[in-house]
Design a protein around this nucleic acid. Structure first.
Lengths: 342, 342
DNA sequence: GACAGAAATGTGAGCGATCACATTTTCGAG
DNA sequence: CTCGAAAATGTGATCGCTCACATTTCTGTC
């Protein structure tokens, strides 16, 4: 590979002039600039980012850490972020891991920092991940996609609390008085926010609050949770903390012959691409993950340009009405606890 | 940040000795090694990967390009790859894009190569992406996750053809004689392989082959395709090229009151986490995407160690039996073309 | 305790760019 | 023309490390 000196020699100028052309400083005479560019083209020269990074101390690279399984939400956020970063001229070095192990996260951060990333982004909503980075002394800014506010200004998120309010109010407006919650795992901050939103609406409307049952986001856990919910007493609506669990619920109710929304209404969360084709199509809370990813990059750019972290950026989700929730009494309400199948 | 000279000074040795400790060459006396390590710890020293890369010309970085929407398959593959890479001491710089635009791909490769990645991985199954890289003259090895064999030895994949055979044979063994195919987009190499597998089984068993209807992987397209399929004539089974489209089919059939698998059996492809909770639970072909990602890294390591590309690595998918396919005639077969709803 | 050979450590150059500053060239005004 | 300021270009140091080779310090043997 040719280097800057080779180009300089061929163009008959000094290496510094080549450097000036490379960084298009406008103190180079058009005629020399043309000569240099010709030499660059002839040698197929590409400046070494590594050498440049060594002296400028800028790698134009951002470290992206993501934990947990490759779910639709985080994956979409990562994609949105990645595209926005590339557009802004940044590279993204990603460290993905299926665990949220503190040691693994710190190790990944260490490697990224050693590689001189200019900033870190953490896409993860579980307490373990957030806590792992919370009080870290870092040389570079770190932003999380996290909605509880625990990271102070260093976060960009979709308002999970608001989303849960939307879902729960919608069900309450439909006349449901007993709205149970299928919560996400207790390790998830987003899950906690969603539960909080649900509780808040129930409380403000004076509705009974039954202790929620928690799943782990998977359809399996949704299925299992539905059985526990059904064994636990009377209700007409379920607010599930994500669409996958809602699917499990749909399945469980179908297995028992309980019509949705005839007897039980369901609202999910996320609006995954499948949700519109669940049977029945799922009413859910849509989060624009791509947008979230782009916003993260925007915030990061501000910080990288020297601005202080401002208020946490928080965007609003929105309710998508489909067919899984209906006015209470549209079918017969479940009035008795239902025994599990024998 | 401290540099190698600072450490050397504090430890009372030369920078070269520090370098030796860093690269744990065993020509350093244990006592000096300990002194150096103490100095490293005291200064919180971390060697600059950038400086190291400049001289060794090795960045220990791999460029990962992925195109298209964040589907379960590619995302899982990327995760598996990322974890394997980290374990092997490599970083992953990823360029994800929702398009498969040739220009965008070449641009991304250019940026990655300029950054001195040691290898490139392309996770994409559409013709455009593969063609974009197919005849590229690159300084670094490039591996694709691609099953058609178009990339020669430079690919690692799950045998899509075999998976389709599995699905189709399963339906045929169940007694189905008219098995239609809901294909993936014509731009997808994987889709082409799946269709080829379906055709192959049909041909070898002397079964009628109806022209498949193509979707775009989305549940919406599955729904629409089901309607076209139903309008097109008689059949008792559908092999859908992926689970999401199978979901759309399930939805369409449910809307028409056609029982699955009573009248129509369905087999999908991928085994996404939701598939087990579709109504009915979907019989499908499972691909181990995480494994695929790890295999890609394995192959890459061999190449990076100087071995030649060998035969393309090809792993087998496997059929997961659930409830969406049943022996023909378990319900009444559809004998007349069904008019679309008015 | 002298010596050779091995083991341990040190020295200076160089990777490929940018930075700070020095030097040369150009251009317009008098 | 000459002069001086502005524009254009050049020079050498430097970023933080590894490489190649030089030098010093240990060993063990006689």
């Amino acid at each position: 590979m040719a280097n800057i000196t080779d180009v300089a020699r061929l163009a008959g100028v000094s290496h510094q002039t080549v450097s000036r052309v490379l960084n298009n400083e406008n103190t180079v005479r058009p005629s020399t600039k043309a000569r240099v560019e010709a030499a660059i083209a002839e040698l197929h020269y590409r400046p070494s980012m590594v050498a440049r990074a060594l002296v400028t101390r800028k790698t134009r690279t951002i470290g992206l850490i993501s934990t947990g399984n490759p779910l639709y939400g985080p994956s979409s956020t990562a994609l949105g972020f990645n595209e926005a970063a590339r557009e802004a001229g940044y590279q993204v070095t990603s460290a993905s891991m299926s665990t949220s192990d503190r040691g693994a996260i710190l190790e990944a951060i260490d490697v990224l920092v050693a590689q001189n990333v200019e900033a870190l982004v953490l896409i993860a909503s579980d307490v373990a991940s957030i806590e792992a980075v919370q009080d870290l002394e870092l040389q570079v800014p770190l932003i999380t996609a996290e909605s509880s506010g625990r990271m102070g200004g260093h976060s960009v998120s979709i308002d999970q609390f608001r989303g849960a309010e939307l879902a729960t109010s919608y069900l309450a407006d439909l006349g449901h008085r007993r709205i149970v919650h299928l919560a996400g795992p207790s390790t998830s901050l987003d899950a906690a926010e969603r539960e909080r939103g649900w509780r808040s609406v129930l409380a403000s409307r004076g509705l009974e609050t039954r202790e929620p049952v928690a799943g782990d986001w998977s359809p399996e856990s949704g299925y299992a949770a539905a059985e526990r919910l059904l064994g636990g007493g009377d209700f007409t609506a379920i607010f599930a903390a994500n669409d996958q669990m809602a699917l499990g619920v749909l399945h469980a109710l179908s297995d028992r012959g309980l019509p949705v929304p005839g007897r039980i209404s369901i609202v999910g969360f996320d609006d995954i691409p499948e949700a519109a084709h669940f049977i029945p199509p799922l009413t859910t809370v849509r989060q624009d993950f791509g947008e979230l990813g782009r916003r993260i990059m925007e915030s990061l750019l501000e910080v990288l340009r020297g601005q202080e972290f401002g208020e946490p950026v928080r965007t609003e989700p929105r309710l998508i009405e489909r067919a899984s929730a209906a006015p209470v009494g549209a079918g017969r309400a479940v009035t008795q606890p239902i025994a599990p199948p024998t």
